[in-house]
Each structure stands twice: as structure tokens, then as C-alpha cells.
């Protein structure tokens, strides 16, 4: 399996130019920033509130943006052009994910500046957010590959945005309805738990369990994405 950084960068640069001219998608970045601006005006924000904004960014910017980018490539038949080119799956998906990853990083940095979030251990939090963003990129890619059009993708991604963006709202119900206890294992909830633990003084070794669960989601997401991508290389 070859891996050419030149091909990854070619796809990345193309996507940057394309996204710059795509107001429908690029304007979604504003939503978490607006949330962050209003939360930032409140006093004494808890770590959970900071992570409402961060999880919202991961759901709206990372997953939705990636989903829209992939769905549009499918709808306009340009994805097939990439598939028929010498670019490999890691090169195509790497190039297409880089734009989303960078925009996610910028949005999260801006959001934390607006809400005034200063983590006790920035290293652990940064690693956890980076790993989480890989999961949301894989999820967005998967949803984009499943969708036939950008409009269909916009609808399909809504429950995903709801579950992962506002999932923490359901945690109190988990005690009442045991079936909802699965929510505890969602990557967004794990991220909040990890951040709360770090804020309480936990070190890297203490949050390995949380990180492990998020990594497991990343692996599942990536495997599912590659399987669906390979299926999409063929017409039915």
C-alpha cells in the first residue's frame, strides 16, 4: 500500500478552495461560536458546560462538515473520479479529513477562548479532543458515504448531531431507564467524564479507560468507513 503526501495535500488544497466558496457548509462553523459567545457571558462555567460547546463543535463542525463534503463528492460523481485515480483509500480519506480536522481545531480553540476554558492539564485534554475528532470524522465520512445527496446527508446527520451534541442531557435518565446506560459509553460522554476527572486532578493513567473507550469508537468508525468506501467503489 503506497501513501503519497502529495496526493493527500492535492485533495486537501482542492477541498479548502471548494469549501471557501461553499457558504452553506462553511457557515455551520458559526453555530458553535455563537453558543460559545453566549455561554462565555455567564459566570463560573463548569467543565460540563465547556464541553457542551466542544461536543457541539465535534457534532456540528466535524461530523456535519465531513458528511457534507463526502456526500457532495458522491452526488456530483467526483468521488468516483478520485476512486479511479491512483489515490489510495488512506490518501483520499486523509486528504478529505484534513480540512475538517483543521477547521475543527480552529473552531474549538476559538470556542474555548470565548468561554474562557483553561484546562488543568491541556496535554491530556488536547489528546482526548484529537482522538474524539477522529471518531467524528469517521462518523461523518460514513454518513456521507451512505447518503445519496447532500440534502439526504443533512437529514441523516441530524440524529447524530442530536445524540452526540446534546447526549449529556440524557445522562440523568440513565439511572431511571437502565437501557439508556449505554449512553455512558458514548464518546461524547466519555470526553466529558475525562475532562471532569482531569479537572479534579486525575493524571494520564487515571483517564486511560475513558481514552480507551473513545479509541474503540474510532477503530469501529474507521473500519465501518473503509468497508462502506470499498463497497462504494463498485456500482450495484
Amino acid at each position: 500500500m503506497t501513501f503519497s503526501m502529495k496526493r493527500v495535500m492535492a485533495i486537501f488544497q482542492k477541498d479548502m478552495k471548494d469549501l471557501y466558496k461553499n457558504m452553506y457548509v462553511s457557515s455551520t462553523i458559526l453555530m458553535p461560536l455563537i453558543f460559545a459567545f453566549f455561554y462565555g457571558r455567564m459566570d463560573d462555567l463548569t467543565v460540563e458546560v465547556h464541553f457542551v460547546v466542544i461536543n457541539l463543535t465535534l457534532a456540528i463542525v466535524t461530523a456535519f462538515l465531513q458528511c457534507s463534503i463526502i456526500a457532495e463528492e458522491k452526488e456530483k460523481n467526483t468521488l468516483r473520479g478520485l476512486m479511479l485515480s491512483p489515490a489510495t483509500i488512506p490518501e483520499i480519506l486523509g486528504g478529505k479529513s484534513l480540512v475538517t480536522f483543521i477547521l475543527t481545531a480552529i473552531t474549538i480553540i476559538l470556542c474555548t477562548m470565548l468561554t474562557g476554558y483553561e484546562p488543568t492539564n491541556i496535554g491530556i485534554i488536547a489528546i482526548a479532543i484529537v482522538i474524539s475528532s477522529l471518531f467524528y470524522i469517521a462518523l461523518g465520512t460514513l454518513m456521507g458515504l451512505i447518503s445519496r445527496t447532500v440534502i439526504e446527508a443533512s437529514v441523516l446527520i441530524l440524529p447524530v448531531m442530536f445524540i452526540f451534541g446534546f447526549g449529556s442531557m440524557f445522562v440523568p435518565f440513565a439511572e431511571q431507564y437502565p437501557i439508556l446506560s449505554v449512553i455512558d459509553y458514548l464518546p461524547n460522554i466519555q470526553l466529558v467524564e475525562l475532562a471532569a476527572a482531569v479537572e479534579a486532578g486525575s493524571g494520564f493513567g487515571d483517564v486511560l479507560g475513558n481514552l480507551g473507550i473513545i479509541v474503540a469508537w474510532v477503530i469501529i468508525g474507521m473500519i465501518a468507513t473503509v468497508i462502506v468506501f470499498k463497497k462504494r467503489e463498485l456500482d450495484e
Binding site: 456530483k76 467526483t78 468516483r80
Partner: peptide, 12 residues
């Protein structure tokens, strides 16, 4: 089904 990027120029 050979598509082109609609928002980009021919050159791009």
C-alpha cells in the same frame, strides 16, 4: 458519471 468540481475553475 465522470464529475467535475463545480465551484472550481477548469485549471483547478
Amino acid at each position: 458519471n465522470s464529475g467535475l468540481y463545480q465551484r472550481l475553475s477548469i485549471y483547478d
